[in-house]
């Protein structure tokens, strides 16, 4: 099954290593999708979006719909039931777009490796634009990782030269 082509345009990819793309007013919008984990990564994201952290001040916002998002923020192992939901969310996002994996489960399945119900993590299936390991990563870790998108160094996890993967 062809699932996701996680491709960032070259222009956007370059811009992420410096500043947000020119002409894009406002924060970089993230659409969070929990694909079947314990909810711990989501709880830490919720903490990050609250006081005393300042997700908005760091240049990020949480989108209510994929159509309003720049990046897909995925947590949890990918259950087979959530795979088409993830794909639908991805397809509803405007270009350019990218994928952030929040937590070990989203990356490689973590404690929930592949079985009859889950496909494990996304790294074997698609190109990941930002990796935020941990079970769960702390809000500070997540914020530091996200900040690298706007002004930090190039991630070891930046998109591969191919055009994504398939399941």
């Amino acid at each position: 099954m062809r699932l996701i082509r996680a491709v960032l345009s070259v222009a956007f990819r370059q811009s992420m290593t410096t500043m947000k793309p020119a002409g894009r007013g406002g924060p970089l919008m993230l659409f969070h999708i929990e694909t079947g984990g314990c909810g711990g990564c989501g709880m830490e994201l919720r903490a990050l979006a609250s006081a005393p952290y300042d997700l908005g001040g760091a240049g990020f916002g949480l989108a209510g719909t994929p159509a309003g998002a720049d990046m897909l923020l995925v947590s949890g192992p990918l259950t087979r039931m959530m795979a088409p939901v993830l794909q639908a969310a991805w397809e509803a996002m405007p270009d350019p777009k990218g994928i952030i994996c929040l937590g070990d489960c989203a990356l490689d399945g973590g404690v929930f490796g592949e079985n009859y119900a889950t496909l494990g993590g996304l790294e074997r299936h698609v190109t990941i634009d930002l990796r935020l390991p941990g079970c769960p990563p702390t809000p500070a870790d997540v914020l530091a990782g996200l900040a690298s998108l706007l002004g930090g160094g190039v991630q070891e996890s930046m998109p591969r030269s191919d055009t994504g993967g398939s399941l």
């Binding site: 969070h32 999708i33 929990e34 079947g36 909810g39 994201l45 994929p66 949890g76 939901v85 639908a88």
Partner: peptide, 10 residues
């Protein structure tokens, strides 16, 4: 649901 943009499990 199952993808509402929130943080809760789906």
């Amino acid at each position: 649901g199952p993808a509402s943009g929130g943080v809760a499990p789906p």
